[in-house]
Design a protein around this nucleic acid. Structure first.
Lengths: 240, 240
DNA sequence: TCAAAAGTGTTGACTTTACACCCATGA
DNA sequence: TCATGGGTGTAAAGTCAACACTTTTGA
């Protein structure tokens, strides 16, 4: 932002650089959910003729008076009705021809939601959960964005207690382990998994039992801390 | 990018959303160097009256016909004369009031350069290397950007062989260890450090010795692989 | 001969992995 | 009574941290 050599005021900058205000900026959200033992992604039918019949991530242009996180939360709220979700910026994609309408740079966020706790009143317009394994050939560069976010989650899921955002409030260790397995794509040893989780001190024993399972019920737990909207903001600011 | 419900062409999109092309986008580069056993950052005197006498990162608006990486390389080339450096995107900052000239969203990159290999013909305009420990009160939100990039480097420096971009082609293990120490801010045990480096298989023994040191000379090494411009691009694309 | 750093292995602590049996429940 | 998963511990392997002495060179 500091290319010119003579000293200028902010006001003169605004005028002299008006040429550059020809790039649009959007956010795209990779919204992860978990249901029927599978990781799911929320996708919408592309509304661009160029990509008709292709699915795409949920996104929108950033409005001049909202910041990037606000835009992401707005999209999540509009689409899922949720406004207290975990959201994290991952990467910004700015290739020249990534969008057929013109120059659009997009900031990718991933989001983790409890798929059964939200009521998509919105199944009428073409918004659906897709199994990760079924997804291919998304619109725009959304496959690349999805892969980048997936990789980020895999890196973070053992480091930070974010995974609980995908589960209902009460869950068994089996459910938690199955979720880890579907994110990481590996099988985990049950005893070692439980040992590791209890060392991390992320969950609280609720002294309740599963019901409606066709086998011996397991104990129910809840997350000790939930990383959500407000906490995520605090984390970033504390780097100052 | 998919908010409207009726099907549109790319062309109609471009027109109907023209309101949104009022946000400018920039890149800011946190350029790290290493000299005299200290980590250094390349800063320039801010050219905005609002921030007169404050230092800022090197950055510029992204041009409509260049992608984000191209813009970052352009800045590096203009300022340092180097065009084969390591560069990595870190985070995008978009707060409403981060820039006094108006709405500017900036994509932060960090870069690692060999401070002694480049000839800053440019010391005339106010461009200088600053010791990390001396930096305070930068222009804009550049302190936050710097801290975010520093944290990213600290996470990556034991994971990927990027650190060699800060050193001359030939270096001793003592120099490498001192560099790690100044990045991580800790002291490392010499024997354990050498063990770890040799396990990582990142360096090649050159069968040469240091000269001009006032003590027993050590062996010289070079990096086995250099992560640079082309490799960095390949890495990202391979995620598809 | 002194100062400064090079070079080099071992031990104990800790972490990670592999692995098997009995138990509680619902069908 | 059977099928399904719940719940639990130990031993071996691997990784990490702490630590000291002899050697080489230049001043």
């Amino acid at each position: 932002m500091d290319k010119l050599l003579n000293l200028k005021t902010a006001e003169s900058e605004k005028v002299s650089h008006s040429d550059y205000f020809r790039i649009a900026i959007s956010v795209d959200c990779v919204i992860f959910g978990y249901d029927k033992k599978e990781l799911k992604i929320l996708l919408i039918k592309s509304d661009l003729a160029e990509f008709s019949d292709l699915w795409s991530l949920l996104g929108d242009l950033v409005r001049p008076n909202e910041d990037l996180e606000t835009a992401s939360y707005r999209i999540l709220k509009e689409r899922t009705g949720l406004d207290d979700v975990y959201l994290e910026q991952v990467y910004t994609f700015g290739s020249l021809n990534r969008h057929p309408s013109g120059r659009v740079i997009t900031v990718a966020y991933y989001s983790l939601v409890d798929i059964n706790h939200l009521h998509l009143k919105l199944t009428h317009n073409e918004l659906h959960w897709h199994r990760l394994t079924d997804i291919k050939n998304l619109a725009f560069d959304h496959q690349l964005i999805l892969n980048t976010c997936l990789q980020r989650i895999r890196e973070q899921v053992m480091e930070k207690p974010v995974i609980f955002n995908l589960l209902p409030e009460k869950f068994s260790l089996r459910e938690l382990q199955e979720l880890y397995q579907s994110i990481l794509g590996v099988n985990l040893d049950r005893r070692n998994f439980r040992k590791k989780i209890s060392l991390k001190d992320w969950v609280v024993d609720l002294d309740e039992m599963e019901s409606d399972v066709p086998h011996r019920p397991g104990k129910l737990y809840k997350a000790k801390v939930q990383l959500r909207k407000k906490q995520a903001k605090k984390r970033l600011q504390s780097q100052l």
